[in-house]
């Protein structure tokens, strides 16, 4: 079983709780997950899941490198204008539309539906 298969519930959880991540392969097939969680709570959820799957983190097949992004507050925001789309805004900041979607799950229900005047958090 690959590390991705072993830790799939952790990755699913990251998708659900708004953590954006990238996967790389480290030493000897180690899965390296580098990402940004929207809150300390979301990060703790991921570490709890990691510990559940690999008690005491002894398997040495996963490196979980999650930092916590600034939610609101000092982070960059963008006000949606007419004709905008997540991918267009993403292009403007040089980031994937999905990372904007992930950072704004609390206010967006559908990545295709954003409205002029909405203030989006930009995870940069």
């Amino acid at each position: 079983m690959s590390a991705q298969e072993k830790y799939q519930s952790l990755l699913e959880l990251a998708n659900q709780n708004g953590t954006s991540y990238e996967l790389t392969e480290g030493d000897n097939g180690t899965l390296v997950v580098t990402g940004v969680a929207p809150s300390e709570e979301a990060k703790t959820q991921l570490w709890d899941e990691y510990e559940r799957l690999d008690p005491e983190f002894r398997s040495n097949d996963l490196i979980l490198n999650i930092s916590v992004g600034q939610a609101g507050g000092s982070g960059t925001t963008y006000t949606v204008e007419s004709g905008d789309s997540l991918s267009k805004i993403g292009k403007h900041y040089g980031i994937a539309w999905k990372s904007i979607w992930d950072a704004n799950r609390d206010i967006l229900n559908d990545p295709d539906k954003i409205y002029p005047g909405q203030v989006l958090k930009i995870p940069v």
């Binding site: 480290g26 030493d27 180690t30 983190f57 490196i63 490198n65």
Partner: peptide, 19 residues
Amino acid sequence: KFTTCIQTVQQAGITGIDN
């Protein structure tokens, strides 16, 4: 402190671990 210490190590930008 155990989990915190492992977290600290894994968040340093490493590519392999032997815990």
